[in-house]
Design a binder for these strands. Sequence first.
DNA 1: TTATTACATCGCAATATTACGATAATAAAT
DNA 2: ATTTATTATCGTAATATTGCGATGTAATAA
Lengths: 109, 109
Amino acid sequence: MGVTKTDLFTEKQNELAKVAKVFAHPARVAILEYLIQANSCINGDLVQELGLAQATISQHLRELKEIGLIKGSIEGVSVNYCIDPIRWAEVQNLFQDLFSGFPKISGCC
Amino acid sequence: MGVTKTDLFTEKQNELAKVAKVFAHPARVAILEYLIQANSCINGDLVQELGLAQATISQHLRELKEIGLIKGSIEGVSVNYCIDPIRWAEVQNLFQDLFSGFPKISGCC
DNA sequence: TTATTACATCGCAATATTACGATAATAAAT
DNA sequence: ATTTATTATCGTAATATTGCGATGTAATAA
């Protein structure tokens, strides 16, 4: 099949999974890290930075945009991309909620 | 192609992506949440809990095991699964490193 | 020994993802 | 108006993922 049965799970579980999927490719992780490190916003010279084709980078940027983690603003002929701080914090909390749900002093295993 | 070019990225980027991929399915998120909530370790009555076939659950459990997030110990005829606290903390830090790398007071956008 | 129970693995079909060349689309420069 | 530069989208090939029935495996029960 290859189709996830989203109706079996809670909205939050589906949301976390969808967000995690965006982090689940090293190119997208690299893009995010690059946007963080370059404190000024950077346009698509990511093509130079990473070794992927322009079309491929553009596709990854779209996925990051779709989940809301980054925003792009047209700057003349090029586009400035940057991280959306609001969404960034939101996503951080999503993961934090899951991670902190596990009490380190659990007696099993 | 459909094959990720891991050689283009750092080890840490690849590792984070690989771990994120495990979180990128609601069934696996649900399994983790169930293991957290059931503070005693639980065997595969996840099949009852989630609405997926036994083979499918087993497959998801394997992926969680392969990345090290859970451990299974044979208990007679059944298997007790539980979260590995060490690895759990490790993975939490992986994400935390990325999230905290972004300073909320960034002047762009 | 022969069931029975609980999981794991195999094999397959349906679908999703990754990557890239080719081709738009848009704005500035000549 | 034509070229140039930058990004987006389309189409496609290669590969990966998801889900499950069927089957295998190992331990207990009868």
